[in-house]
Simulated scan of single mutants.
Amino acid sequence: MVTTLFPTNLFEEFDRLQRELDRLWSGWPAAIRETALDVVYPAINVGRTPEAVEVYAFAPGMDPAKLEVTLEQGVLTIAGERSSPIPENGQVTVYANERFAGKFRRTISLSEDLDPDKVEATYRDGVLRLRIARKAHLQPRRIEIK
């Protein structure tokens, strides 16, 4: 007589165990790079040149028309909504969902030497690039010696 120590459907048992652990540890990060309470989206890089500040927001799969970018009193805001590629008809069982979906708003405080009338925004290959020029009279300049 052979007896098994495993249930007849091992994957259902793993799914049940995962649900129990999720219920037990709700609110804790599921991965080491994940934050416990907030999802920071989109990821950004900010750099500075003598002429401008450049912001790169990584938002793949977005429609640029659905992005809203504002600059007011030195605060840059990037907002929008990213839809989920997973249908919500109840026929798909999701085992992992690491891609952010939903409304987002990201704000960045910038220096006051920027010119809000000289902002360029482009979106290409999932990257939103913003270039905000510094005010001309505040840019470093070389003084010629005569």
Rank of each mutant, 00 (worst) to 15 (best):
T49P: 02
N89M: 02
L67Y: 08
P116M: 12
I86C: 02
E51N: 01
E72N: 12
R106P: 04
P42N: 13
A59V: 01
D117V: 04
G27Q: 06
R16H: 15
E112H: 08
T3P: 02
I32K: 08
R16D: 06
G126V: 09
R141Y: 10
T35W: 03
T122D: 08
G90V: 01
L21K: 13
Q139D: 08
A52E: 06
E20Q: 15
L67R: 10
F6G: 09
L37T: 11
P50H: 00
E20G: 13
V55R: 03
D115N: 15
S26N: 13
G47W: 01
V94G: 00
V69Q: 00
Q18S: 15
M62E: 08
A31I: 06
L114T: 00
E120I: 05
D63Y: 04
A79P: 05
R124T: 12
R23T: 07
S84L: 02
R82A: 08
V127E: 07
G80Y: 04
V53M: 01
R124G: 12
L37D: 09
N89W: 05
E81R: 08
F100L: 01
K66H: 09
A43F: 14
V40N: 14
I44N: 05
T70Y: 05
L21W: 13
E13P: 00
L130R: 02
Q139E: 09
D113A: 04
S84G: 03
R124Y: 10
A101V: 10
D15P: 11
E120P: 00
R48L: 00
E120Q: 05
A52F: 00
